[in-house]
């Protein structure tokens, strides 16, 4: 006997497992713990399947399961408590600031070598597999505590005020940390991806 409900379940499950690698990569980046990440991705996929009526249509399935995963990761980070080590964050800052200083001349304008160039269009860039390899490598090069703050903002979509409540860092400090992370990432991408593109 065909059970239409079971068939839909199977289809949704198949779609979901297609996203599993993306989900896992996302969770590993946030949690930096493979087995914890696997658990939370499993939970999110089950929750997505159980609540499959909660999303409208195939196009948003991926967005929807990611938002479930995001909430589960935020919960996990909260329960794990104090995830930011302030002295380490400050030490990371010294090094990142030194690197930023080298981009600017004494008059605080770009040095000729550091002046940012034009990148190709986002659509074109994001559609290239190799870009993601470089992007992840650059993310991995961010110091740990700085990366956590950056990811809360850009991957978990938390506002600065919310990050402050979660971690205890001030809004001013949060802005500085996000600035350092963005500058480090864009220098890394410019060096590892966009420059080699030009040379090809």
């Amino acid at each position: 006997m065909d059970d239409p409900g079971a068939k839909v379940d199977q289809e949704v499950a198949a779609d979901l497992s297609g996203f599993r690698d993306d989900l896992l990569r996302f969770a590993v980046m946030q949690l930096r713990d493979r087995s914890l990440a696997e658990d939370v991705v499993q939970d999110a996929m089950v929750a997505a399947l159980e609540g499959k009526d909660g999303f409208a249509g195939q196009s948003s399935l991926k967005t929807w399961v990611f938002s479930i995963l995001r909430h589960k990761i935020i919960d996990l980070l909260r329960r794990r408590g104090r995830e930011i080590r302030f002295t380490d964050l400050a030490m990371e800052g010294v090094e990142l600031d030194d690197a930023i200083d080298t981009l600017f001349a004494d008059n605080q304008r770009w040095t000729p070598e550091a002046r940012p160039g034009a990148w190709e269009s986002p659509e074109e860039t994001l559609s290239q597999q190799q870009f993601w390899v470089v992007f992840r490598a650059c993310l991995d090069h961010l110091p740990e505590n700085t990366a956590r703050i950056f990811m809360m903002r850009e991957f978990l979509d938390m506002e600065v005020a919310e990050i402050g409540e979660r971690t205890g860092i001030s809004a001013g400090n949060c802005h500085v940390v996000l600035y350092r992370a963005r500058m480090k990432l864009r220098v890394c991408l410019e060096r590892e991806w966009f420059t080699t593109e030009e040379k090809r």
Partner: peptide, 19 residues
């Protein structure tokens, strides 16, 4: 260009997060 690059960073993060 620096601002454009920061936009691309954000777009890449959203993309990676299934947004």
């Amino acid at each position: 260009h620096c601002g454009d690059q920061m936009d691309l960073l954000r777009a890449a993060c959203r993309h990676a997060g299934g947004g």
